[in-house]
Amino acid sequence: MSEVPFKNPGWAGNTGEFDLDEDQVRGDDFVGTRPREGGHPSGAATYPYMLPEKHPDAPLFEGEHKERFDKILTRYPNKQAALLPTLGLAQEVRGHVSPETMDRVAELLELSPAYVRGVTTFYTMYNKRPVGRYLVQVCTNISCNLCGADDVMEAFLRYTDTEIGETSEDGEFTVVEAECLAACGFPTCVQINSRYYENVTPADVPKIIERLKAEGAGGD
C-alpha cells in the first residue's frame, strides 16, 4: 500500500503531526478554547469534551456545569430539547451514562426515566458502560477501508492488547470500530477522545499509543 502523499492540516490548526499536543496543534491561530462555564449561551451545548479523567461518582450539574446547564436551557422552547446536550454534559464529567445518571437527568428535565433510557440507548456516543482513559474509534467504513483501515484497527488492538469494545487491563484504552467520521479523504481516520487523527497508517499506531501513555503518566 503506497503512502498517502499529504498530511492533513489537522486538528484545528496548521499541522497534523501526531507528536504535537493539542495546544501546539491548535497554534496561535486557533480562535480559542471554550470557557468552562460555557461562554455565550449560543455555544453552551457545543461540549462536551471526551476527557481522559473520568469521575464516575462526581456530583452532576454543579458549579461550572450547572452554569452551562442553565445556559443550555435558555436556548430551547422546552426542557425536553435540552436532553441530548444534558446527557453529554453528564458524560463529560463521569465518562459514561449510567442508569443512575439517566434518572437524575430525567428528574432535572421533568421527563420519565423510561423515556430518557429510550433516547439514551438510541445514540452511540453515550457510553452505556465505563470506557478507558482513551476511547479509540477507528473508522473502518468504505473510504478508510479501501485504504487499509482494517490493518490500522488490527494494529490498535495489538498494541493496546485488547479486543474490540473491551478496555485494556491498565484501564488506558478502549478500542471500537467507528462508522464514517467525515474525514474520508484523509484515511484512515481515528478519533481518540475529542481529537481526530488523520492519515493514520499501522506504522503510526505504536507512536500514537506511546505518546498517549506518556501523557497519562505525566498526570495530564
Binding site: G43, A45, Q80, L83, L84, V119, F122
Partner: peptide, 28 residues
C-alpha cells in the same frame, strides 16, 4: 438567534425529519 446544537452519534439524524426529532430531544 443562532444556537449551535450537537447530536450524539446517529446517521439517521441527518435525515431532515429525524434531525427535527433529535433536536426536540427524542430518538432521531
Amino acid at each position: 438567534d443562532i444556537t449551535v446544537h450537537v447530536g450524539a452519534g446517529a446517521y439517521i439524524c441527518g435525515e431532515e425529519t429525524g434531525l427535527m426529532n433529535s433536536l426536540e430531544g427524542r430518538r432521531g
